[in-house]
Write a protein that binds this DNA or RNA. Structure first.
Length: 310
DNA sequence: AAGACGAAAGTGGTTGA
DNA sequence: TCAACAACTTTCGTCTT
C-alpha cells in the first residue's frame, strides 16, 4: 500500500533513467520531469499548493496560491496589484535600505492609482453601500454580484449623473432581487437605506428602461418561500399555496393586484387547508399588507377558485 | 377575549387627456 | 399638468368562536 501510495506522492528525488537529481516539477502540466534527460517521471501530480478558500485568518495566511476569485463587488474586481507592506523579498530576507525607499515610493503610487479618478471613488463607495444593504436584507452572493453588475452598467452609461449614489444602489439591488427571483419589496429596501420608497421605485424604473432590463412583473409565487419560512409553515403549506397561486394566475386573478397581497391570501388559505392555521394578523404582519387586504384577496380566491374552507 | 368580517373614508400612484 | 381611477390602507363597529 505504501509503495502504491508513493506513486501519487512526489517524493522522487532522482531520475530512474539517468540518475540525475535535477528534477523539475511542472504544476501547470502536472508532471515531474528530469531536467537532464527529459523523462517524465510522474504525471498527474497533485498541486499541493495552498488553496484560496480559508476559514479563519490563520488559514488565510497560508492559503495564498491563487488569490481570491474575481468579483464584481470590489471596485476593481479584486484584480488589483497589492504591494506587500513588509520589507521582505520573495525569500523572506530583508530588503536593503536603498531598495526599501524605492519600494515605498512604488507603494504610494500604487495606492494613488488604485482609487484614482472620481468614477473609481464613486464605485468604491457605492459597492460598500450595496454590501451594507445586502447584508441587512440577507441577500445571497449572486444577488449581490448581479446588483454590482447593474450598477457598473449604470456608471458606464453615465446614468448616475444628477442622481444620488444611494438612490441608484438601492434601485440596483431592487432590480437584482427581482431578476434573481428573490423579490424584496420596495418598503424593505427603503427601510435599510436612506432612500425613500418613491425614489427607489423611480430609480428602478429609470435604470430598467435605460439598461433595457426585462423583468417580468413580480410573481407572487416568488414570495411564498420567504414568507412561509418566516411564518414557520411546513412544506405542504408552501406547496399548497403555490398550487393555489398557479390556478389564480391562470384565471388572471393576480393581475393588477399587489403580489404580496395575493401571496398573503394564498398562504392564509393554504395554512387553513393544511391545518397549520395562522391568523390573518400574523400573515398580514410578515407580508406587510393589512388584514383587510388579506381578507379581500382571500375572498376573491375562494370565490373564483371554488375553494371550500371547512 | 381574540380573531374574523365588512363598511366607509383616506392615501399614494398610475393613466390618459 | 391635472383629474379620474383602482388598489390598498386606516379605522372602527359587529359578529363568531
Amino acid at each position: 500500500m505504501l509503495d502504491n501510495e508513493s506513486d501519487y506522492l512526489e517524493n522522487v528525488n532522482m531520475c530512474p533513467e539517468c540518475g540525475s537529481s535535477k528534477l523539475v516539477k511542472d504544476y501547470q502540466r502536472a508532471e515531474i520531469i528530469c531536467f537532464n534527460c527529459g523523462l517524465v517521471i510522474r504525471s498527474k501530480i497533485i498541486d499541493s499548493g495552498p488553496e484560496w478558500r480559508a476559514f479563519d485568518s490563520e488559514q488565510a495566511e497560508k492559503r495564498v496560491r491563487a488569490g481570491s476569485p474575481s468579483t464584481l463587488t470590489i471596485h476593481d474586481k479584486g484584480l488589483t496589484t497589492m504591494i506587500d507592506w513588509r520589507n521582505k523579498d520573495s525569500f523572506g530576507n530583508d530588503i536593503n535600505p536603498k531598495k526599501r525607499a524605492q519600494i515605498s515610493r512604488l507603494r504610494k503610487w500604487q495606492r494613488r492609482i488604485r482609487i484614482s479618478d472620481a468614477t473609481e471613488r464613486n464605485l468604491a463607495l457605492a459597492l460598500s453601500e450595496m454590501d451594507r444593504i445586502s447584508s441587512h436584507l440577507g441577500l445571497s452572493r449572486n444577488v449581490r454580484e448581479a446588483a454590482a453588475m447593474l450598477y457598473r452598467q449604470a456608471v458606464n452609461q453615465r446614468l448616475i449623473r444628477g442622481r444620488s449614489i444611494e438612490g441608484v444602489t438601492a434601485a440596483a439591488i431592487y432590480a437584482a432581487c427581482r431578476k434573481c427571483k428573490v423579490p424584496r419589496t420596495l418598503d424593505e429596501i427603503a427601510s435599510v437605506s436612506q432612500v425613500s420608497k418613491k425614489d427607489i421605485g423611480r430609480g428602478y424604473r429609470f435604470i430598467a428602461r435605460e439598461l433595457d432590463i426585462k423583468v417580468p412583473p413580480t410573481n407572487p409565487i416568488d414570495y411564498i418561500p420567504r414568507f412561509s419560512s418566516e411564518l414557520k409553515l411546513n412544506g405542504n403549506v408552501q406547496t399548497r399555496a403555490i398550487e393555489i397561486l398557479k390556478r389564480a394566475i391562470n384565471i388572471g386573478l393576480t393581475s393588477g393586484r399587489g403580489p404580496t397581497g395575493v401571496a398573503a391570501a394564498a398562504l392564509y388559505i393554504a395554512s387553513v387547508l393544511e391545518n397549520e392555521r395562522r391568523t390573518q394578523r400574523d400573515i398580514a404582519e410578515v407580508t406587510h399588507v393589512t388584514e383587510v387586504t388579506v381578507r379581500n384577496r382571500y375572498k376573491e380566491l375562494i370565490e373564483l377558485l371554488k375553494l371550500d374552507i371547512t
